[in-house]
Design a binder for these strands. Structure first.
Lengths: 177, 177
DNA sequence: ACCGGCATGTAACGGGTTACATGATTTT
DNA sequence: AAAATCATGTAACCCGTTACATGCCGGT
């Protein structure tokens, strides 16, 4: 499963530009379970277009650069369907922050504090974002995914607030905060 | 932050072979926040050895292949310390299972069911694993990380059990189960 | 005047995974 | 008899990120 499949999946939600697809992974509902950058999305869309799995329509905008709006074709739907028939690969996570917490005894207290607060803040932001009243009103199976994201965020925030002492107890010897 | 840094971090927990380091990411405490394969770990260890950030000792075993036991050097500790001074990159997650749930309306019910049960089962296994009575008795900051992993697993399991219907409601039209 | 957002794209580079290669021993 | 565990390693390949390149508009 690569970014091409991902774009195909994103386009089943409706037509979109590369820029808009990127935002799905930045803020949108995909944000907590997948990532992709422009450098992978744009070439993926070109490929998909070439293979007629999607179509493109140039949209003029006033005061904005032109937009290339892509839409999935029946052929694209077929390909996506076949890719989704396989068993999913196990989740892959890489959290540098967690690694830092795990190696907290090698960090000085002030830096650990910065990392901790930054990480916690990031989770609060994500939760705020996902808690906004729904714009697009999702079908139940998308709510399932969104809800799991929320549950994760809440869990992380509560846990971090309640167990902060565990992280800092190893290296508390009278430093700031 | 690459696999070299990761190996250095792993070796701060005590000396270990490449094989043992791999297991830290498979079952061990690293499992829920980082991944690495042999194809990256072994070359990383070679590099670290070459740069004298770690040392190696060949250990003979009866009825087993020889083992190369690595240990971090002071130089290695220094390098690790410097890498940990930087701000952590944001978490990167890719969950094909979640993507499938998000696109559940493109899957047939039996496959969705398989994926769902498999994913839930995987979480139960991970929770069982992490719930085992501690072998190595970790310091508090490692308990913090381990505890957050447990909290995540429990959250996922409970949520999936309680919200199964959301996922299947879109495509329920009298199929098996 | 400058920054952030909108909008698309490319090229080099880095990095990790997959698959292969080998082989003994223990468990099922 | 087969499969899993222990144990190390290599090479080709895939793929994605980073950084660069471009440009207009609106807000501060």
């Amino acid at each position: 499963m690569n970014v091409q499949t991902l774009c195909l999946g994103a386009l089943t939600l409706g037509e979109a530009s590369g820029y808009e697809i990127k935002k799905l992974f930045e803020d949108g509902p995909f944000a907590y379970f997948y990532h992709a950058s422009y450098g992978s999305i744009y070439p993926a869309l070109s490929m998909l277009l070439e293979n007629e799995l999607i179509t493109m329509r140039q949209e003029e905008q006033d005061g904005r650069p032109d937009k290339k709006v892509y839409a999935i074709t029946p052929k694209g739907s077929g390909v996506l369907g076949r890719k989704l028939k396989k068993a999913p690969a196990p989740d892959k996570i890489r959290s540098e922050a967690m690694l830092m917490f795990f190696l907290a005894d090698h960090l000085d207290a002030s830096h650990l504090d910065e990392v901790f607060e930054g990480y916690l803040e990031a989770y609060r932001d994500k939760l705020d974002y996902v808690n906004r009243p729904d714009d697009g009103e999702w079908p139940p199976h998308c709510q399932f995914v969104k809800g799991l994201g929320q549950a994760f965020y809440r869990t992380a925030i509560r846990y971090m607030e309640e167990n902060r002492h565990l992280l800092f107890s190893s290296i508390d010897q009278g430093e700031k905060r």
